[in-house]
Amino acid sequence: MSDLFTQAVFIAMVASGVRLAVPLLIASLGEMFGQRSGVLNLGVDGIMLLGAFSGYYAVLRSGSVWYGLAFGTIIGLLLGIVSAVIAVTLKAEQGISGIGVYLFGLGMSDLLFQKLVGTPVPISSFPKVQLPLLSEIPLLGGMLFRHSLVVYLAFVAVPVSMWVLNRTTFGLNIRAVGQNPESADSLGVSVARVRYATVIIGGTLAGTAGAALAIDLGIFQQNLTNAAGFIAIALVYFGAWRPLGVMAGALLYGLVNAVVLQMKTLGIIPLAWSDIAAMVPAIITILALVVVAQRFRPPAALTTPFSRGT
């Protein structure tokens, strides 16, 4: 057990948790905007997968990780528009339509990969950026400030999201539309426009998250996200629809995974317990969800389509 707390291992373990948290954090923040306005998008994982393939393929063709990230983000934006049309304009049942988007992303990303690439080909990853001064702080520097730019941007997105939600008219409209769309509508707020905007933000960030994952790993494979999009949705509930809560959930999930991995590597968790230990992050998240669910309530209009005059 003492091996776990050597400086090198401890730093690497926390850094690993942060890396694991980042795609979840980005996707969860996007999904949070949608849910705060009353739209549940279960298609996050499918959008992440298409963002992942698009980002990977763009890097493969261009050699630029930033083109890749941008391309994955744009694909996410387009799928966000599609999701918004389905959920807001067509008023489809949100759970079912989200599963449709997920299946589309799962199948299409694999189909495109098979037809355009075939056998996995490695691509370059994001370069590491050591933040001046901060990266030199003992312990913390290695854990938090020697990551790629995407990691820093993901965490910067948390206060930005808080500001948008709590300090802007747009944020006020999002909360109003998610809580009581009829009242918001009576005050002149366009429920459809707000929901379009939030679902598109969610799709865009899901695409970014997928592309960030693929480029960070330097590879694409069928079902690369391994259901990370669904975990991201769960983290929105875990985080009680608040950016800080979402960040806490993503970090908890990533860190528990990292600790379990390191304990298995060092033999602290015996091989016979490996499979059970692999479930620990999910179990902890579910337990935390249960606790959160008793204290917080989701937006009142979540999953409810809006039609004026009904």
């Binding site: 690993s16 890396r19 694991l20 795609p23 994952l213 790993l217 590879i219 494979q221 079902n223 690369l224 391994n226 990370a228 995974n257 990292a258 991995l261 298995k264 590597t265 033999g267 091989l271 490996s274 499979d275 230990a277 692999a278 479930m279």
Partner: peptide
Amino acid sequence: INYIGSFSDVALASE
């Protein structure tokens, strides 16, 4: 030896 508990989780295998 680290059995990650998944045949498909590329990110976990990386970590």
